[in-house]
């Protein structure tokens, strides 16, 4: 019984549910077993699949997108085992154990620490810059398309490479220079963050949400706002607590209200 491309694709689709039964005991193991089950049903008898449970239902943790690469290798191992009539149980455990850690580190740093924040910042910048909410949903789709282009490329590309080349399939991760991409994205993200902060102070992108926006366009308010943002930055640097940030904002609101009420010289915005 040979594995066809459509079987690999189906397994790839099943990896979308890899975290459905995430738990503290076995983490992603049940997701892996769920994904590979149709392949096992194709290759083995019911009794053999039950025996395979020991390998597939034991602890497994990795990055959910790149775990597909390990799945590809496991499919290849299973196919070879059936063709050559050998017992591959120890090999399955060793492949899982040796690849899950490095792939988790690679995936976490690329997807969660670089791509997600960078794409978010770029999208937020675009919506704020064009400031036209009739296009907001269209601009938000940029985020989904850009992120998922990488997501789907790695999910389906890695399962197919893992199956085709086995352990040599790691060259798939050299096809695209993740490291260089991360460096570029990091720099561009910071550049756009700088522009976004300036935009908030000098050209507030949500004018329709504030009544009498004109009074907030005075230079006195912009200075007050700018100083407050810098102050909040250092408050957060001091103790990384979002709650403290919200409480400090509340205090700033009270200070602003009193300054405005007293109509102080440096805050003539009435």
């Amino acid at each position: 019984m040979t594995i066809r491309k459509i079987d690999i694709f189906r397994t790839g689709l099943r990896t979308f549910f890899i975290q459905s039964l995430w738990n503290y005991e076995s983490l992603l193991a049940y997701g892996i077993a769920f994904s590979i089950l149709p392949i096992l049903i194709k290759l083995y008898s019911k009794r053999d699949i039950i025996r395979k449970g020991r390998e597939y239902l034991s602890y497994f943790n990795s990055q959910p997108y790149l775990a597909a690469f390990i799945l590809g290798m496991l499919i290849k191992l299973e196919e070879d085992a059936v063709e050559n009539s050998i017992n591959n149980n120890s090999k399955i455990s060793s492949v899982k154990a040796s690849y899950m850690g490095p792939l988790a580190a690679m995936g976490d740093s690329f997807f969660w620490w670089c791509l997600k924040p960078a794409t978010l910042i770029i999208t937020i910048f675009l919506v704020m810059y064009f400031n036209d909410f009739s296009n907001a949903l269209f601009l938000l789709s940029f985020f989904l398309i850009f992120f998922n282009a990488f997501h789907l490329y790695y999910r389906f590309g890695s399962i197919s490479f893992g199956y085709k080349y086995g352990e040599d399939g790691l060259k798939f991760f050299q096809k695209f220079n993740m490291n260089l991409f991360q460096k570029v994205m990091f720099q561009i993200t910071f550049f756009l963050l700088g522009i976004s902060i300036t935009m908030l102070v000098l050209k507030f992108p949500f004018p329709k949400l504030v009544e009498n926006i004109e009074i907030f366009k005075h230079i006195e308010f912009q200075i007050f706002y700018g100083i407050s943002v810098i102050f909040l930055f250092f408050i957060y640097k001091l103790k990384r607590s979002p709650l403290l940030l919200i409480l400090t904002t509340l205090i700033i609101i009270f200070i602003f209200s009193f300054l405005k009420e007293k109509n102080l010289v440096f805050l003539r915005i009435n």
């Binding site: 937020i124 704020m128 902060i197 908030l200 507030f204 992108p205 949500f206 949400l209 504030v210 009544e211 907030f216 706002y225 407050s228 943002v229 909040l232 979002p242 940030l245 919200i246 904002t249 700033i252 609101i253 009270f254 602003f256 209200s257 009193f258 405005k260 009420e261």
Partner: peptide, 12 residues
Amino acid sequence: GFAIVIFFIPAL
């Protein structure tokens, strides 16, 4: 004075 909360939400 609470109007300025709109300015602070994205800044935070």
